[in-house]
Structure formats: structure tokens, C-alpha cells
Design a protein around this nucleic acid. Structure first.
Lengths: 126, 126
DNA sequence: TCCGTAGTTTCCTATTCGGTTAATTAACCC
DNA sequence: GGGTTAATTAACCGAATAGGAAACTACGGA
């Protein structure tokens, strides 16, 4: 058996890690900071009301998701943004563009209908 | 006290919820299924090796993120995709497009440099 | 060699997540 | 009313998250 873990499963895991890393406003703010250029851990920590270990852990999550790359010069560990996973996120989301664009002509009526039904409970027939 | 919760904070919370909902391949598969049209809970559950309560919880997460809308007809609770939050995700990610596109000319050298430093650790002396 | 700086690791706590089974609600049909 | 179908709620469990404090590692410099 060639790949017990299929390509799709690997991509799934990577998207899992990326979305999980992004599901936190502190980490998203760190990425925004790094969009302006590389920085050391204490620099990244500065705007946040967080202990340094907490920041360190957030950075580890971002690194695990491949969203940052880290180096080492002397006692410093510079972090740099790697936006490649964000391209995957964008591509994934863009799959659904036809749907959110069709929303007005096709979907919205149905969505409203569902919501009304939900509010109404059992009204009459259908 | 005017808006102790600022607009930015609300958007943060919404992105938190959306990304968290997307950070699970089962839930992403459910969205993919719903892209083909509305479905009831048991229909959605069918491809998964999961108990119905587990499916129900996943759907609640998706609903909380605004990714699905739910109705009620008789004992059925039809679910329909609402792709609007995915447009937000795409827009958010697209912020970083200049960075992932500049990667080849501007960033890659630096990223590699960081990675090499990291691997090398203390190379020469000790 | 000792000190200060930069970060990480370890250990702890509280909360959330993903899953289960069992019980419950809700609506239809006979 | 009684039974069946659809789905949720309740209670519980193990694993993962997010945080802090304290200890530790690693490097540069006086």
C-alpha cells in the first residue's frame, strides 16, 4: 500500500493546523505585526498583555502551521512571516465564491425562509 | 459607556468563530456537502462515522459561526450553507497576497537564512 | 567567571473540544 | 393515545488550549 495517509488527508491536516492557528486574534495580530517585517520575540510580545511564555507558545503554534519561520542569532530568535499557508486559505475560501455571490439571486430567499420557519416553529402547512 | 466592545473586537470575535469552525476537516466536509444544496441532519451525518449527537454539535459550531442557517419543517431541521463568512475569510487572507507573491523576490532568501541558522545552531566552535 | 538579556521548558490550573451513550423533545402517522 | 422518525440535550470522558509562575538554557559582555 503506497500512501496510507492520502494526499487529501495531509492537506486536511495542514488546513486544520492553519485554521486553528488563525482562530485566535492574538495570533492574527502577531501575523499582522510580522507583515511589516521580521521581529524578535520580545518585540512581538510588546503590544500584548501576556507573559513571555504565553507569547512563546503562540509563536510555536504559528510555526507549527508554517505561518512563521524562525532563526537564531545570538540569544535572539527572529521570526518572519511565511504567507504561503494564507494562499492556501484564500484558495480554499475562493471555492465558495460562486455561492456567496449567488446568494442574492438564488440563496437568500431560501435562507430567509429557513430563518422564518425557525422563528415560527410549526405554523400551518408548508 | 459607549461600546465597550469596539467594532474591531466584534470582527475579531467573528473571525475567531469562523476560523475555529473551519479548523476541523469534518466540518469543512459538511460545508462542501451543503454547497450542493440544503440537507437534513441525518443526510449530512450519513458519510461520517459519527454519532448523531456529534454531528449535531458540529452543526451547532457551524451555525454559531454563521456558516449555516437552519430551518424546521416537521421533525426535520434543514441546513443551508451561508457562505458570507467565507467571503470575510477570503478578504482577510487576501490582505497578505502581496506578501506571498513577493516571497520569491524578497522574502525567500531571508526565510532560508533563518532556517539555516536554526538548523545550524552552534556550528563552528561550541 | 559571573551577570544580564532573550527565550524556552516545565509544571500547574481552568476551560474548551470532540466524542460517546442514554434520555428527551417534537412532529408525524395509524 | 401509541409508535416511529428526526434531532437535541444531558452527562460524562480524555485530550487539547490558553494562561501564569518558576526554573532553566544560551549567548554576549564586563
Amino acid at each position: 500500500m503506497p500512501t496510507a495517509t492520502t494526499t487529501a488527508a495531509i492537506e486536511d491536516d495542514r488546513l486544520d493546523a492553519t485554521f486553528a492557528a488563525l482562530a485566535n486574534s492574538t495570533r492574527r495580530a502577531m501575523l499582522a505585526r510580522l507583515a511589516d517585517g521580521p521581529a524578535n520575540v520580545t518585540d512581538i510580545a510588546e503590544p500584548f498583555d501576556l507573559s513571555l511564555p504565553a507569547v512563546s507558545k503562540h509563536l510555536k503554534v504559528l510555526e507549527h502551521a508554517g505561518l512563521i519561520v524562525r532563526g537564531q542569532q545570538a540569544q535572539f530568535r527572529p521570526c518572519a512571516l511565511d504567507a504561503a499557508p494564507l494562499e492556501e486559505v484564500s484558495t480554499w475560501a475562493e471555492q465558495y465564491r460562486p455561492i456567496w455571490e449567488a446568494r442574492f439571486d438564488r440563496m437568500e430567499g431560501y435562507l430567509h425562509q429557513l430563518q422564518q420557519q425557525h422563528k415560527a416553529g410549526t405554523n400551518d402547512d408548508q
